[in-house]
Simulated assay, not measured.
Amino acid sequence: MTKIPENERNIIEQAIYLPMLLTVLQRDLSAVEKSLIKLKKPYQHWIENTIRNVQKELAEVKRYLHKNNIRVERMKSDEAFTMYLFLYKGYEEHCNYFNPRLRNKVEELMCLYLSTSSPS
């Protein structure tokens, strides 16, 4: 049984998903810059604005974790699972995440952030 309340678990999971989302967005930005698209700037600005929004959110998550003495560490991964260690108020909890679940959650967040980011 987990000792971590659901609201704090959601914040902890953001500390996992948001860095992954930033990596994807930065790779996509690089792909747009190298692509044969005629008008790259609107796409670049859209992705850059989304990156800034994700970075702001991640900074808030990190502040919250630091303030509440919560740590998240990636332990190990294989083809199917990635294990994380959560240090929460003196408790250690090991959690395995199914890699397709991580990818799907990052994709879901990407859709959310891209739809709320203004391209200007």
Results as ranks from 00 to 15, higher is better:
46 W>D: 01
60 E>M: 13
101 R>C: 07
35 S>M: 11
23 T>I: 08
63 R>K: 15
85 L>C: 01
72 V>D: 00
77 S>M: 08
45 H>K: 13
19 P>Y: 02
44 Q>H: 11
102 L>P: 02
73 E>Y: 13
101 R>N: 13
34 K>R: 15
20 M>N: 05
67 K>C: 01
53 N>Y: 00
56 K>H: 12
37 I>H: 11
100 P>T: 10
74 R>Y: 08
18 L>M: 05
91 Y>D: 14
48 E>W: 03
67 K>A: 12
97 Y>N: 04
69 N>P: 08
62 K>E: 12
97 Y>S: 05
60 E>H: 14
39 L>R: 13
83 M>K: 04
18 L>H: 02
60 E>V: 10
78 D>E: 08
65 L>H: 02
65 L>S: 05
42 P>N: 08
74 R>M: 09
102 L>S: 05
39 L>W: 09
99 N>K: 14
79 E>G: 04
63 R>W: 12
27 R>K: 14
19 P>V: 00
47 I>N: 06
92 E>G: 00
28 D>F: 04
76 K>F: 03
87 L>I: 12
32 V>E: 06
63 R>H: 15
54 V>L: 03
86 F>R: 00
33 E>Y: 10
57 E>C: 01
65 L>R: 02
99 N>I: 08
23 T>D: 12
44 Q>P: 05
46 W>Y: 12
72 V>L: 09
